[in-house]
């Protein structure tokens, strides 16, 4: 009933506009994180496949993407969500198994990024980028020997932190700073993490998403909770910045390309995924956005200083890091409730 009413409403609205988008070309809808691609790559794809037009849209976190694909009548063809979200989508039968015959470049991806826990038989996803969560800081303002998550809650950093407005990341680092897991399923632990986030308000200069990058580059804040790739980009723009992966253990994430089960252009979508795995294209993306590549050839061609940087951390850091898991419907709605209570506490 819900769906039907909504659908009717949307169909009515859409029928007004749909006339202009059909020019005989296949329209491939790609839905990706913001600031997460070299956009010239899309143009190149369209040049290579003249009968496909890419409609590119972006989101700021996995949850927004999930809400959009489950509630909107728009049918996307390629998504690039993170590990735990892919696990959720697989569990809810929302992804189409990939035909790897159409994605020969999959063989160029390093085997250690295949068959990960969120897609154990690697039937649904092709790795795009990976990275870690850490603290981007201004070397002229922050002088610490050891970086831990505790820093973000330390009273001496009043009005200093750009805090991510992402549910799993914010609650995750708060949980971790209390000595709990990034994947805690305990109501008591979560509430403690929430209270800690509320108390952190005095330390926070602003709650941000991608806009945190510009602020750090402009030298607005001493430190920010940030993904390694975004941090690499900021550092390339401002020499005073540096990135630290907290010693008490970070979050390791993988963002992979998937095709929703309701995609109407699966062939074109697989062409797109295959194209993104071409060495030159993967290289362009990796260079532009600064995230760590799962592509063997691209990795090997990297200059030594990048290979040795935080973008490709040493094994012990990776082993200590946790990957987000999908925690099931019940726990996820507990997270959502705790998160909106936190927002209301501001």
């Amino acid at each position: 009933m819900k769906k039907i009413a909504l659908l009717l409403c949307l169909v009515l609205c859409f029928s007004v506009f749909s006339g202009c988008s059909n020019s005989g070309k296949t329209v491939l809808r790609v839905y990706n994180w913001g600031e997460y691609i070299d956009e010239s790559v899309i143009k190149e794809f369209e040049k290579r496949f003249p009968d496909i037009r890419v409609q590119y849209e972006t989101y700021t976190d996995n949850e927004i993407m999930y809400t959009k694909i489950t509630n909107s009548s728009t049918k996307y063809d390629v998504l690039i969500p993170s590990d735990y979200m892919i696990e959720r989508l697989i569990g809810e039968n929302m992804l189409a198994p990939l035909n790897f015959d159409n994605i020969p470049n999959y063989s160029l991806i390093d085997n250690k990024y295949k068959n990960l826990d969120f897609d154990p038989e690697n039937k649904y996803s092709v790795p795009y980028m990976w990275g870690t969560l850490g603290i981007l800081y201004d070397k002229t303002k922050v002088h610490e020997e050891h970086f831990t998550w505790e820093m973000l809650f330390d009273g001496k950093y009043a009005n200093s932190i750009l805090m991510k407005k992402d549910m799993r990341d914010a609650l995750g680092v708060s949980l971790k700073s209390l000595g709990y897991s990034f994947n805690s399923v305990d109501a008591g632990e979560l509430n403690a993490a929430k209270d800690r986030l509320s108390a952190q308000k005095n330390n926070v200069l602003a709650y941000v998403n991608d806009d945190g990058m510009d602020k750090m580059i402009a030298g607005e804040a001493p430190m920010a909770l940030m993904y390694s790739g975004d941090a690499a980009y900021c550092i390339s723009e401002n020499d005073n910045l540096a990135f630290a992966i907290p010693e008490d253990g970070s979050n390791l994430f993988f963002d992979s390309m998937v095709i929703p089960a309701n995609s109407e252009h699966k062939d074109a979508a697989e062409k797109f995924i295959n194209f993104m795995c071409e060495k030159e294209i993967a290289e362009k993306n990796a260079n532009e956005i600064g995230y760590s590549t799962p592509h063997t050839g691209v990795y090997e061609a990297l200059p030594a200083e990048v290979k040795n940087s935080f973008a490709y951390p040493e094994t012990d850091i990776l082993e200590k890091a946790e990957i987000y898991k999908y925690l099931g419907e019940e726990i996820t709605s507990m997270y959502e409730r705790v998160w909106s209570e936190f927002q209301a506490s501001l």
């Binding site: 976190d61 999930y66 998160w339």
Partner: peptide, 13 residues
């Protein structure tokens, strides 16, 4: 902000 969050983020329409 709360309303926006429930619709866009939490999916709790």
């Amino acid at each position: 902000d709360i309303i926006e969050q429930q619709f866009m983020h939490a999916g709790n329409w």
